[in-house]
Design a protein around this nucleic acid. Structure first.
Length: 586
RNA sequence: GCCCCGGUAGCUCAGUGGAUAGAGCAUCCGCCUCCUAAGCGGAAGGCCGCAGGUUCGAUUCCUGCCCGGGGCGCCA
């Protein structure tokens, strides 16, 4: 509908140009927007005001000239010049009602592509290190990424959802070490546990599993383990050096095979837990991308070679550096350490390259706000590869703060005492969690009110929307109790009977859905959909209260049923996009 | 020191160049013999942080300042 009017405007401007009323040059992009109030019609354009200066005539006069040259359309009822020079478009009633048939015909495909872009996108979200269970911070990225993926898909993009599994590197070594130390503890050895190890309870669980399978096979005496180690932080030493020495000791005593046992037990257990957690949360992926596999495939080396070939690398102090500072980053970055190992950054860069090589036009990253340092260095890497850095898009999620009884329910990862995503889901339910997480713009701090999310009352926006859906289902159940059935064809033929203001309002809202999807996709803003659904539910509730749907008159009844059925479809598919259930009764 | 995000109703937030700045909660007043009152209708509530600039027009864009929140200082 919107495109149709844009086309009319564009035609008219073309004629104005031909008639010499506006000077040649490039015409401005046509701005057509929804009106805020129906007294201004459905759509309004500001072109007359924008072009008034160039045309050398007052905006209202130019508006008249534009309307004068507008091709006739059977969809537009009338046009008006209003205010300082707006052109308001009023639609024919039949144009308004046509959205109902369209929704009924398309079902959950309604809302689909406004513009056929077909851009292929790889969307990465969560990608938490498999060193522990997901916490509530990851939950926001999960809900956001999953919803955005759904919306992009409906909006006509080709989307692949990816999780980058950091199954390589020092943090994983520390994890494996932590499991082994807990295992020794279970065997009865008294070994100290480093402060910077992973201290969560789940480490014991994994240690139990290993012991169940191998018994005391990997047991070593505490003296043997601690012999000759540098001083720990308790003895005035450096914690990092100490834990690295412990890892080296573990590798030495366990040998590659033994170390791998603990490493794999930890990885499988934790990654399995993460996958299950996300799946239960309705968060899905097309690809779990292993960093280890990336390195084993030689992709990291290839990425480094490419940067070298493009002249962006140099060697200093035995390490190989990427000259990121020349490409907009604040400083240069190490890609190969002095010890010959490649850095996390090198892997990240290789992973980005892999996304491009796999044919994606754009790579979207959903990261926590604490990763904002990544933006400049990854963009630098993109340029280092000779690629357009705009193909890389990093969306930073601001933090979510939980509130309980009006006070911060704070979490601290350090102590191992944190609120996990699973705990949150169990407390407030998946529906409320998904909705509350995406209710706010991603670049906005989120105050997550646990009490509100849990409340089964009108204060809870999730129930408000779900209730609208359930009410429609309830009407249909009542209809089933009656002698009559819904007849869609009769309803379609009687669309002219839907003249109540509440009905017009509901139709207007339904026809906005594709525009909402389009904006939410382009602006990467699922929260727009949440707000839209709330507004749609408001229209439905108001209509419900003002009018009876199951009236005796057959034509009107079926027309109204068509309308609320269309509303049910949009409410249902909108909720589904957000990962929220659409119950039939509440 | 540098970087990111924000400042809009009492509270939590929408609103990325337009007309009278919106919603939820909280407050006040009404509405169930009627398809679910988890609902609806109404009232009240605002120097859109401050100061400049761009524009026919600025809450929106630019600059500076003030006030919050977070991050970084060769570790990802």
């Amino acid at each position: 509908m919107k495109e149709h009017i844009e086309e009319l405007l564009s035609q008219s401007l073309h004629y104005l140009l031909r008639d010499g009323i506006i000077p040649p040059g490039q015409p401005p992009a046509i701005q057509l927007e929804r009106t805020k109030s129906s007294e201004h019609g459905e759509f309004a354009s500001n072109v007359a005001m924008v072009l008034a200066k160039q045309a050398g005539m007052p905006p209202r006069e130019l508006a008249a000239a534009i309307i004068d040259r507008m091709p006739k359309s059977h969809q537009v009822a009338k046009m008006e010049i209003a205010g300082p020079g707006f052109i308001n478009f009023f639609l024919q009633h039949i144009t308004l009602t046509s959205v109902i048939n369209e929704v009924l015909r398309k079902g959950d495909q309604f809302g689909g592509p406004l513009h056929r872009s077909g851009e292929s996108i790889t969307l990465e979200y969560v990608s938490a290190n498999p060193t522990g269970p997901l916490h509530v911070g990851h939950g926001r990225g999960a809900a956001y990424g999953a919803s955005l993926g759904n919306i992009l898909h409906l909006a006509g993009y080709r989307v692949q959802r990816e999780y980058y599994v950091n199954d390589n590197g020092r943090q994983m070594d520390i994890l494996a070490l932590s499991v082994w130390l807990r295992y020794l503890e279970l065997c009865g050895e008294e070994v100290g546990f480093p402060e910077n190890g992973y201290r969560g309870e789940y480490i014991y669980d994994i240690a139990h599993l290993v012991r169940g399978e191998y018994g005391d096979k990997w047991r070593f005496g505490s003296v043997e383990v601690a012999d000759g180690l540098p001083p720990g932080p308790g003895a005035g030493g450096d914690g990092e050096i100490y834990i690295d020495a412990l890892i080296a000791r573990a590798r030495e005593l366990l040998a590659a095979t033994g170390f791998a046992v603990f490493f794999k037990a930890a990885l499988n257990s934790i990654l399995g837990d993460i996958k299950e957690d996300l799946a239960d949360f309705g968060v899905v992926y097309d690809l779990w991308f292993s960093e280890k596999a990336l390195e084993d495939s030689g992709a990291v080396q290839r990425a480094i070679d490419r940067l070298r070939a493009n002249g962006h690398l140099y060697v200093k102090d035995g390490a190989t550096w990427f000259r990121a500072s020349a490409l907009g980053d604040e400083k240069d970055r190490v890609v190969i350490r002095e010890n010959g190992r490649t850095t996390y950054f090198a892997s990240d860069v290789a992973y980005f390259l892999s996304k491009l090589e796999r044919g994606f036009q754009r790579a979207i990253y959903v990261l926590g706000a604490d990763h904002h340092g990544y933006v400049a260095r990854l963009r630098a890497a993109a340029q280092g590869f000779g690629e357009d850095p705009d193909r890389l898009e990093i969306l930073l999620m601001q933090f979510a703060i939980l509130y309980r009884n009006g006070e911060k329910a704070q979490m601290s990862t350090r102590s191992g005492q944190f609120v996990t995503l699973r705990e949150l889901r169990e407390e407030v339910g998946n529906d409320a969690a998904r909705f509350f997480y995406i209710m706010r713009s991603h670049d906005q701090h989120l105050d997550f009110d646990l009490d509100l999310a849990k409340s089964r009352s009108n204060e809870n926006p999730v129930y408000y929307i779900q209730y609208a859906h359930a009410r429609i289902c309830s009407v249909l159940r009542n209809l089933a109790q009656m002698d009559t059935r819904h007849n869609q064809a009769i309803g379609e033929a009687a669309m002219n009977l839907l003249t109540e203001e509440h009905e017009l309002q509901l139709m207007r809202s339904l026809s906005r859905f594709p525009e909402c999807i389009d904006s939410a996709a382009r602006l990467r803003s699922p929260h727009l959909l949440a707000h839209y659904l709330h507004a749609l539910a408001t229209d439905l509730h108001a209509y419900y209260n003002a009018h009876q749907f199951l009236v005796d008159e057959e034509n009107l009844r079926n027309a109204r049923l068509n309308l609320i059925l269309a509303a049910r479809i949009v409410l249902g598919s909108g909720l589904k996009l957000l990962g929220v259930s659409a119950p039939e009764e509440m």
